[in-house]
Design a protein around this nucleic acid. Sequence first.
DNA 1: TTGCATTATGGTTAATAAACGTTAAAGCAG
DNA 2: CTGCTTTAACGTTTATTAACCATAATGCAA
Lengths: 229, 229
Amino acid sequence: MNKIKVFYAEDELFLGKIVKESLESRGFEVMMESDGGKAVAAFKKSEADICVLDIMLPNKDGFAIADEIREINEDVPIIFLTAKTQTEDVVKGFSLGANDYIRKPFSMEELIVRIQNALRYKSEAPSKINSDAIAVGKYTFNLNRQVLAKEGEDRKLSYRESELLRLLYENRDKVLDRKDILNLLWGNDSFFNSRNLDVYITKLRSYLKDDPGVEIITIKGIGYRFVLP
Amino acid sequence: MNKIKVFYAEDELFLGKIVKESLESRGFEVMMESDGGKAVAAFKKSEADICVLDIMLPNKDGFAIADEIREINEDVPIIFLTAKTQTEDVVKGFSLGANDYIRKPFSMEELIVRIQNALRYKSEAPSKINSDAIAVGKYTFNLNRQVLAKEGEDRKLSYRESELLRLLYENRDKVLDRKDILNLLWGNDSFFNSRNLDVYITKLRSYLKDDPGVEIITIKGIGYRFVLP
DNA sequence: TTGCATTATGGTTAATAAACGTTAAAGCAG
DNA sequence: CTGCTTTAACGTTTATTAACCATAATGCAA
């Protein structure tokens, strides 16, 4: 699977590093540039799938960069980051158009949701698992609707349950690291989150217990393997 | 269909750019000018259907610009933008034949509604979902009329209900942030508005409950996803 | 090597907290 | 008065934290 490439223009290096690492831990590839003047060239070289641009940058601001990027590439989604003081006091609502805005401070969850949404327009490639129901043993799983169905019985899954099941399914028959799951779903793998994952594994096992062919196998010290009939 | 042309005089460039893009993403065409001295000439060239003028502008303020615009065109609607502190300006604005004024901070929803109101008698609304009825499962939704129809049964929606449904529909199958909804429809995402959104989600769910394929799925801590059959 | 204790890791369940849902009533504008 | 929006109170669901249990790996003595 090819990684999604994110071009990220940010001059606050401390914040930038955190965001970069956080995105990388979730499977994105990130190219970061802190100088507005060099951003367009860096974008060109990056061949990025999506841009995240801070508006306030030295030498050239995010809007000017966006304009030039648009000349090179009409379609690449652009997400702007704006500081609170720049806009919030004046306009309190943004549009959700081709270009998107996120106000600082933002959570990683927010940024990731926006990136995923923005990329959704473009390629249906990631996997068809999004829209269609898929077979999981004698169950049927619909990710968009977050429903795990079994002959005559639908169970509504919560977002976390459903995202964990998706992850397991996408990596079925392979060993999936605990660490990776935690980073992808919780953003980090601290002590508490670790127990959290256990709780959700327990839940999924209980939901799936009616088909003995469907198993979440523990690989102690490493992670899990999801096997289907 | 011809786009509605908005002439927009604004010197805060960051704000201006965001507003411009927001309007454009909703199907308006926007001509922006940041220098009061050049505004009248720019308006002439723009052949705009409506003007949005910030009052505080360099070289020539919004009132003076409005005066000159009125000499050229008696009918074009003018909306003033005033900073919070300049309330006394409002009176002056109305005496100059302004159609409306908006105090900063304002939400994009607010601006769009005012623009649409001002133009109500002149031409049809810009966004294509505005004029046509759209299919929502076995329902039909007409945004302009704010009517949600089901075989033999029409339900008149209130403004908020209908705007929320539009937002959900425009972002169907995607994760829509609570924060965005709140900012777009209410102008901010304070504690009280948050409960408010819940109330309207409940209402829409109950209106839509006859088609089980139409669902507003909660994504706790993030927002909602609207799914259609 | 066997048997037993130790330790680490994950499993399970329950308690708590946070977020969201529902309903009714109060406020408000036309 | 009427219809819509907001506020408020309370209920429910989901997520997190905590406590305790089970088991596999490790270490060590006999």
